[in-house]
């Protein structure tokens, strides 16, 4: 049985177990977008990067944990500075690709991505391949698949016609990480959520059409009713807000 070290904790795992599973077994969270327990790993999103060194010598590498089989003498760090940087950059890029996705906005919030420096693309797919794998591996249908390549790669039905294998089960919708839409509250057009930070009063409860279930909500955490002591940067209605806060 391979014995590896994850964040300084030694763990013995069965052969064939991935680093992601080993880390989850230890209760160490690793964010993922394209991983699902019931599906074969595709390593498409790279969000699960961890820093891995084999043995005591050698340089460490950033590898995708979801498809990395645990090996003897592996030394894994799931939250080193290097990993954090890579992860944040990835999340930032995903936010720019699909700003309307709740899952991605949640990740941005949870991993401290406070700005998005890229132009929003408003794509409706991040090509994680979950729906394709779901259809093929769990629904045993294989009615949808990827087509094209490079910038033209897309999820599609063959010849743009619904295959007779499709039972309209909706599993692809269920598993898609971008189908769930984010809050359309005070900052619906902003690329990055947490737009509530720029408004006053900051908490979502003050807005009728806000349905912010960000998990966790940065606006609430940093400036909401829970933390009145934190002074935040504000843009809109700055005077009102700072007046309240001081």
């Amino acid at each position: 049985m391979p014995k590896l070290t994850i964040n300084g904790i030694e763990v013995l795992v069965e052969k064939g177990v991935t680093v992601l599973e080993a880390a989850r077994f230890l209760g160490i969270p690793i964010p993922t977008l394209c991983h699902d327990d019931g599906l074969a790993p595709a390593s498409a999103c790279r969000l699960c990067v961890v820093e891995v060194r084999r043995g005591l010598e050698g340089r460490s590498k950033l590898l995708a944990a979801c498809s990395l089989p645990a090996e003897d003498e592996m030394v894994v760090h799931t939250n080193s500075a290097r990993v954090q940087r890579a992860r944040q950059l990835l999340i930032e890029l995903y936010v720019a690709t699909c700003p309307s996705s709740k899952r991605i906005q949640d990740l941005a919030s949870a991993y401290g991505v406070h700005e998005c420096r890229y132009e929003a693309e408003h794509e409706d797919c991040i090509q994680c391949g979950l729906c394709v794998r779901m259809c093929e591996q769990q629904m045993m249908a294989g009615a949808i698949g990827f087509a094209g390549r490079g910038a033209n790669r897309r999820v599609s039905r063959p010849f743009d016609m619904t295959d007779k294998r499709c039972r309209q089960c909706g599993a692809c919708l269920y598993i898609c990480p971008v189908c769930e839409l984010r809050c359309a509250g005070p900052a619906a057009e902003a690329t990055l959520c947490n737009g509530c930070l720029n408004f006053a009063p900051v908490c979502f409860q003050s807005y009728d059409d806000a349905m912010c279930f960000l998990d966790p909500c940065h606006a609430c955490e940093l400036a909401g009713p829970l933390r009145p002591d934190v002074k935040i940067k504000t843009r809109a209605r700055a005077t009102v807000l700072s007046g309240e806060k001081q």
Binding site: E136, A141, A143, G145, A147, R157, R165
Partner: peptide, 13 residues
């Protein structure tokens, strides 16, 4: 005996 998507995927790639 493979899904049409597999063929389509290769054909468009």
């Amino acid at each position: 005996r493979i899904p049409l998507t597999d063929v389509y995927q290769v054909a468009t790639f």
